[in-house]
């Protein structure tokens, strides 16, 4: 028996919006610790990992580990039927071929019930080791979204150059070129507006904007986004250090005392010169 109740159902809506255009079919792995999902996009260029802790739910019961394979577009269609302030309850029986979604209106006078068919997916799980990255950039998520959107007018790839004084996002194409430079901000009263750079060495790498624009769909989940990267590593070193991680924390919307209840991490390999 599996049951998870989330008063802030809008969090699930935002998570689906952040992954449904990247991944078609995926499995939610449910354990007593929470729900997680790992999937590659259809062209296998990027990897997305979602995690929601059990203590982020208002009620969470998972008697034994379950894998819920589903079409995320179908799930998204159903989740869209919930109002933003609805409580969402996910229920699954043992060995069932479907899950039930309940949307409870705030005044508890209305309950909508939907079922979604499950799929048996032959998921390929990739091991994601804990890696220390040489460069970590924390910045407002809406600024990152804007930069990716603007630069995709210019070219297909963004070149991220990071030095101690700041970070530069640049793109070039047939019509010309463009760049945005962000300086590290001083400690401010509004941490959500800050730009923080932590680096061991300078870095310059290029990434496909098509994917970064997909990742930026997670912007409504978090005021800040973290980009973690490492410079090109010498031959023989594990290649995974070259992968960029774009991370959005998932927080509950408690204005007084917000807490992190999970994350979305997107992994993208750099574009390299042939």
């Amino acid at each position: 028996m599996f049951e998870a109740r989330l008063i802030q159902g809008s969090i699930l809506k935002k998570i689906l919006d952040a992954i449904k255009d990247l991944v078609t079919d995926a499995s939610w792995d449910c354990s007593p610790n929470g729900m997680s999902l790992q999937a590659m996009d259809t062209s296998h260029v990027s990897l997305v990992s979602v995690s929601l802790n059990s203590d982020g739910f208002d009620k969470y019961r998972c008697d034994r580990n379950l894998t819920l394979g589903m079409n995320l577009i179908s799930l998204s269609k159903i989740i869209k039927c919930a109002a933003n302030d609805d409580t969402i309850i996910i229920k699954a029986g043992d060995g069932g071929d479907k899950i039930t979604l309940l949307f409870e209106a705030q005044n508890e006078s209305e309950v909508a019930e939907y079922e979604i068919k499950l799929m048996n997916l032959d998921s390929e799980y990739l091991g994601i080791p804990d890696t220390t990255y040489n460069v970590t950039i924390k910045m407002p998520s809406n600024k990152f979204q804007r930069i990716c959107r603007d630069l995709s007018q210019i070219g297909d790839a963004v070149t991220i150059s990071c030095a101690k004084d700041g970070v530069r996002f640049g793109a070039a194409g047939d019509l010309g070129s463009g760049s945005i430079r962000l300086a590290q901000t001083a400690t401010s009263d509004k941490p959500e507006d800050s730009v923080t750079i932590s680096m061991q060495e300078a870095l310059c790498q290029s990434f496909a904007l098509k994917y970064l624009n997909h990742f930026a769909k997670a912007t409504p989940l978090s005021a800040q986004v973290t980009l973690s990267m490492s410079p090109d590593v010498p031959l023989g070193e594990p290649l995974l250090f070259n992968v960029c991680v774009v991370e959005y924390n998932i927080s509950d919307n408690d204005d007084e005392n917000p807490s992190t209840i999970g994350f979305i991490r997107y992994y993208l390999a750099p574009k390299i010169d042939d």
């Binding site: 590659m40 296998h44 260029v45 990027s46 990897l47 390929e124 799980y125 990739l126 091991g127 994601i128 790839a157 290029s206 496909a208 290649l239 995974l240 070259n242 992968v243 992994y267 993208l268 390999a269 750099p270 574009k271 390299i272 010169d273 042939d274």
Partner: peptide, 14 residues
């Protein structure tokens, strides 16, 4: 010309 490898080249299957 720039190219992009599959993410599977970077992470090992579990």
């Amino acid at each position: 010309k720039m190219s992009q490898k599959s993410i599977t080249s970077y992470f090992k299957p579990n």
